Deep mutational scan, measured.
Amino acid sequence: TTVVVGNKKYTFDNPEAAEKFAKKVAKKLGATVHKTNGTFKVK
């Protein structure tokens, strides 16, 4: 599962961990999490 934050990509074996990370980053940046085909995008 990939999490994309700006131009950085983070890969997780565990989708739950990926989602948690994405939400944490989004909260910090005041952004939102978008899920597309198993990829979480923070923007």
Rank of each mutant, 00 (worst) to 15 (best):
D13E: 10
K23E: 10
P15F: 12
K28A: 13
V5L: 06
T36D: 14
T39R: 07
K8G: 04
V42W: 02
T36N: 08
D13V: 11
T32G: 05
K43L: 15
L29V: 05
D13A: 13
T2R: 09
K41N: 14
T2V: 13
N7T: 12
H34I: 15
L29P: 02
T1L: 06
K23C: 11
P15Y: 14
A18V: 01
V4M: 12
F21T: 01
A22F: 02
V25K: 04
G6I: 07
A31W: 15
D13W: 10
T32C: 09
T32S: 08
E19P: 01
A22D: 00
K41P: 03
K35P: 04
F21Q: 01
L29S: 04
A26H: 01
T11C: 13
P15L: 09
N14T: 10
K41G: 06
T39V: 14
T2C: 09
A18I: 00
V25C: 07
K27R: 11
N7D: 07
T2F: 14
K27M: 10
V33Q: 01
N14P: 02
E16L: 12
V42K: 01
V5N: 02
A22W: 02
V3A: 02
N14L: 07
F12C: 05
N37H: 06
A26V: 02
T32E: 08
V42Y: 02
K24R: 14
K28P: 03
H34K: 07
F40A: 03
K27Q: 10
A18P: 00
T39L: 10
P15T: 09
A22E: 00
E16K: 13
K35Q: 09
N7K: 12
G30Y: 04
G38C: 06
H34T: 14
A31H: 06
F12D: 00
K8C: 14
K35H: 10
G38V: 03
A17V: 11
K43Y: 15
P15R: 08
N7S: 13
P15D: 09
D13T: 14
N37V: 04
A18W: 02
K43T: 14
V33C: 05
F40S: 03
E19S: 06
V5P: 00
V25E: 04
